[in-house]
Amino acid sequence: MSQTERYYKIDQLLNDRGIVSFQTLMDELEVSRATLKRDLAYLRNRLNAPIIHDRDAGGYHYDRITPRVGAQYELPGLWFSAEEIHALLTMQHLLVNLDTGGMLGPHIKPLLSRLTALLGTADNPVEEIVRRIHIETVGAREFHLDNFQAVGSALLRRKRLIIDYYAKGKDELTQREVSPQRLVHYRNNWYLDAWCHVRNDLRAFAVDSIRRAEILEKPAKNVSEKRLNEVLGAGYGIFAGENVRWATLRFSPERSRWVASERWHPQQKGSFLEDGHYELTLPYSNDPELLMDILKYGADCMVMAPDDLKTRVSDEIGKMAKVYATA
């Protein structure tokens, strides 16, 4: 631990714990008595730290009562430990690789330069992180979020938007006036939850399907968080809605060990059965996305309820069988 890092560690301990014994400081910093005495003296005499020793309390603490005279205590600049910088650099690498739209890159580069300088080692940590960490976003759509900044700006400024929206399912381009409510990053894609003034209802729009976005100088309609969650957050994924039902799925013992650690929905409930099967219960409104997740497990997933979801799965399997039979 470097000298500067020790100063910040002492400051953190005194702020977090109030009173800290000399022995505890030595143990936390892993230094000798002489080194700790020098560090405390430097903090008091050079940086004006109001550190006092309280014999009755058995430790050191900041004097927050006596008025300060002269220069005020302040640690030198923004500083991170080597471990924290490595963690930040790792996060930066994750963001750059996950940011398929290229929105964060220009803003991250200055931070990366500062972090690299702060680290101050000859081990080329940035290059090492890039070489050692690989992120594969298999299954994510490749897209360019050309209108993301306009959407984000309108959202935060609480302004309405005119958007040209391409609905992939219908192969249809429509123009909408919307009041942005929140941006949601879901399964490697961005969605805009908004009040649609054309449909006069809440809708979720895939941001990569917004072909044009124009900010209007009109105040956005505000929808409460509770209402947003009721309509767009209570069901399953992006196909949420108000007509919420509960699905019960049962997984084979072989697949249970994987599914038990998966998060399908914030309100899901799961439990192991005596025979090793795993039963998962979760809310849904519209079933397309849930149907896809069920089918990917094949015979290892059985729908226990409701009956109409059973029928939907059976119908899809029948369609697949016909396709393969005629292929």
Rank of each mutant, 00 (worst) to 15 (best):
E128D: 05
I129E: 00
I129S: 00
V130P: 01
R131E: 10
V138Y: 04
G139I: 11
G139L: 09
A140T: 09
R141L: 11
E142W: 10
H144F: 01
H144T: 14
L145N: 12
D146N: 05
D146I: 10
N147M: 04
N147P: 04
N147Q: 15
Q149Y: 06
A150T: 08
G152Y: 01
S153W: 12
S153D: 12
A154R: 00
A154L: 05
L155I: 12
L155M: 11
L156E: 08
R158H: 13
R158K: 15
R160W: 00
L161D: 02
I162S: 02
D164T: 14
D164I: 03
Y165I: 04
Y165D: 05
Y166F: 15
K168Q: 11
K170Q: 15
D171S: 14
D171I: 07
E172V: 09
L173C: 07
L173W: 03
T174Y: 08
Q175I: 13
R176N: 13
R176G: 06
R176A: 10
E177K: 13
V178T: 02
V178I: 15
S179H: 08
S179P: 02
S179A: 12
Q181T: 03
R182A: 03
H185T: 09
Y186T: 04
R187V: 01
R187I: 07
N188K: 14
N189D: 13
W190E: 05
D193S: 07
W195L: 09
H197P: 00
V198R: 12
V198G: 00
R199N: 10
R199Y: 07
R199V: 07
N200M: 10
N200T: 09
D201I: 10
D201M: 13
L202C: 11
R203N: 13
A204N: 13
F205L: 06
A206D: 00
A206C: 02
I210A: 06
I210W: 01
R211S: 09
R211G: 01
R212A: 07
R212K: 15
R212E: 06
I215C: 07
L216T: 03
K218V: 10
P219L: 03
A220E: 04
N222H: 13
V223E: 09
K226H: 14
L228M: 15
L228A: 09
E230F: 07
V231G: 05
V231T: 04
G233Y: 09
G235S: 06
Y236I: 08
Y236C: 04
G237F: 07
I238E: 00
I238P: 00
A240H: 07
E242K: 11
N243M: 03
T248H: 01
T248W: 04
L249F: 10
L249I: 15
R250I: 08
F251C: 06
P253E: 08
R255D: 08
W258V: 13
W258R: 10
W258Q: 15
V259W: 02
A260K: 12
E262L: 15
E262S: 14
R263Y: 05
R263Q: 04
H265N: 10
H265E: 05
P266S: 08
P266I: 01
K269A: 12
K269C: 11
G270E: 06
G270L: 03
